[in-house]
Write a protein that binds this DNA or RNA. Structure first.
Lengths: 386, 386
DNA sequence: ATTAATAAATTCATTAAATTAATTAAAAGG
DNA sequence: CCTTTTAATTAATTTAATGAATTTATTAAT
């Protein structure tokens, strides 16, 4: 519940964040362009850019004559100093943990991962995470990390920085932020992994100019992160974005979640493999690549099912763009095209405007980049909780 | 697309609006209470309240000793001057138009309606609307209207104030705001009717303290208005909130919208009546009141169907509350209880927290109050477009 | 080369609004 | 009547954006 008034401090934070996002979005840009994009005055942009320059985050990169320009002073190009601040991204999946060091432009410049041993309880996990992270950071001592962002599966309390529940792993109330903050003495942020991915997509991916979009991730389950009114949607108690538990068949099999006929029972990696009697995702992808008709059918069917469920969503929220991540969408499979087709033939919105369905542009590093984005935005740029 | 920076003007508008909403929400309140609710300082509240007082919108209403208070100056009670500003609400339905004059506390103090003749084209409509409105306002000359809000069926462009398309009526590009603004010389706002209702629910109904909720309206179709992150969701091109076109049966009958098995084909007034061979909503309600088993079954089935579709939505957006308006939910029918039951047994969120499902507290005047809310908030209180 | 024109960028004074700290107002209770 | 306590206001301060004026840098024309 956030009925909090505005003041100059919050306005400043907001504008700083806005200018930073504009700098990322436009890559190499000018003060003029930032001003017209944010509808702030040139004077204000001068101030904020000066701030960033004195922090070493931005620097001038030679002056150019703009196209429409016949005379007059050349505009000074501005560039993000990509490595002026680095953040660590930690992506906690139910099978393994990915670690990375990420730049201001969202590039992952160091990477590592480790697998969770069977039956790893939450104390073991914390120990293991700290050990691995310490080794990882030490191996890259030249890359100083200014903040740490964690994106985790399960139910997450962003405000308190606690992993409330990770069902598959049997963990509860893991105080990740406190633990890591004590160990590494930098600001730490925890968010749901898929929500982090949406933030990553907004900052660094293909949704930089979108105000309303959906970022879907197909892993063990199917989750979604949402941007609405140009803000991330972060519910209070739980994870939200449980797209996998949207109803596909109202009279379908009961799910552990309480619902019947959940999408996850039809179109998640696990469901597809078991329905078609395939051993692993690798196997499925290989079969498809080899021209196997059944693999093709399996992927198409899943795409259709996801597309149908997304249609309902699009009829409620008129997102311009839907991003799909995860291996089944990542590889060059027909799944994505099927989602696209169904959303764009079935949805109400599509009668007025196409909904762009695309795979993430952040690649395999989506999880790490997303986790890092959270730390970057809140820990490095604006220090706001909004 | 709204990547617009903040400044003091916008901050002020926001705070003014926040204080006003707090005044409505807490009914009779004090400066202290407003300050703690908005997390603004007492000094700021003094300023904003003074502004409202000089405008005649707020007045002091005697001092009381608060409960926790043993000594010290009594707190001054503040009251909204309910009739300091009045706004007109116009609810355009596909069968008729409801007109009303609404106070600062959301009470409808004058009301009237007129029916749309068969085959009424948009020029006839504009003429008819102006005639009826003029007569209505003249009949209540003592009640001066400071702004006009319109809530309409169809696809609406809020920014331009144009009714883009009203399918059932065959209208296109009706420039309602310009037309009425020229005629009545007060600010006019146009929004989608169901979205207006959501705003009404936020300002005056049972969602005053909610930041995320859904307001569903069952009429000819089924629509929804949404509050997310304490903001109304208002998409750019079209209406959004097309709950009636959420998929209920993936392999169901094709709908004109492009989808298959839309909820509207199962659970809208029209669908229910035709499925059970009932002549009118009145008849259905009467049969139910007389203990007719089939009417009971019809209402329960619709409730279940709506509940199932809402479950998918709740699994994506963790709304705390779902409001249902419309005659079938308004009367004391089992429909609402069925929705409640299904959402609270099936949704993921319900495992952590109950979702409150209730009928609107705004009664039959929901549409008019909602339309008026739009004008009130944007035209009278904050003049902001946000 | 000099000058006029033009556009970018900055500076500086102004404005707006919230905050902080100090002050005044009002009431209770010994 | 005096002290204590809380509410409310006032005045000074701070923060940040804006607008106008100015400076800087560049092109093009003379």
């Amino acid at each position: 519940m956030s009925f909090i008034g505005q003041n100059t401090t919050r306005a400043k934070q907001f504008n700083r964040s806005l200018v930073f996002q504009t700098l990322i979005r436009l890559q190499s840009t000018t003060r003029q362009e930032i001003a017209s994009n944010t509808k702030l005055t040139p004077a204000t942009i001068t101030n904020i850019v000066n701030e960033f320059m004195s922090e070493g985050i931005v620097s001038e990169a030679g002056s150019r004559r703009s196209e429409s320009q016949k005379a007059g002073r050349k505009t000074m190009m501005l560039d993000l100093n990509e490595r002026a601040r680095l953040v660590a991204g930690i992506h906690i999946r139910s099978d393994r943990v990915e670690l990375g060091i990420v730049t201001l432009k969202g590039n992952v410049i160091a990477e590592q991962q480790f697998w969770l041993p069977d039956g790893c309880d939450q104390h073991d996990f914390l120990r293991l995470l700290k050990d691995e992270l310490t080794v990882f950071l030490r191996a890259h001592e030249d890359l100083t990390v200014a903040a740490i962002g964690i994106g985790s599966v399960g139910l997450v309390d962003f405000e308190r920085g606690v992993l409330l529940e990770a069902k598959h792993l049997g963990w509860n109330e893991v105080a990740l932020v406190n633990e890591l903050q004590a160990e590494y003495a930098v600001p730490v942020y925890l968010d749901h992994n898929v929500r982090g991915m949406a933030l990553g997509e907004k900052l660094f991916g293909s949704c930089k100019t979108e105000t309303d979009f959906l970022s879907v991730y197909m892993g063990q389950g199917i989750g979604a992160g949402m941007y609405v009114n140009d803000q991330i949607y972060r519910s209070d108690v739980t994870g939200a974005g449980e797209l996998g538990h949207a109803t596909y068949q109202p009279e379908g099999e009961p799910c552990w979640c309480g619902n019947h006929g959940c999408l996850e029972r039809y179109a998640s990696e696990e469901a597809i493999l078991s329905e078609w009697g395939i051993g692993s995702v690798d196997e499925l992808l290989k079969a498809y690549a080899d021209g196997d008709a059944q693999a093709d059918r399996a992927l198409r069917q899943a795409g259709k099912q996801i597309g149908i469920v997304l249609t309902s969503f699009v009829n409620m929220f008129h997102v311009n763009r839907i991003i799909i991540g995860g291996r089944l969408a990542q590889e060059n499979t027909p799944l994505l095209a099927e989602v696209d087709h169904h959303v764009n033939t079935r949805s109400f919105l599509a009668r007025k405007r196409d909904v762009i369905v695309s795979r993430t542009s952040l690649g395999e590093q989506l999880g790490v980049t997303g986790a890092a984005s959270v730390a970057l935005l809140y820990g490095v740029i604006s220090l706001e909780i909004n």
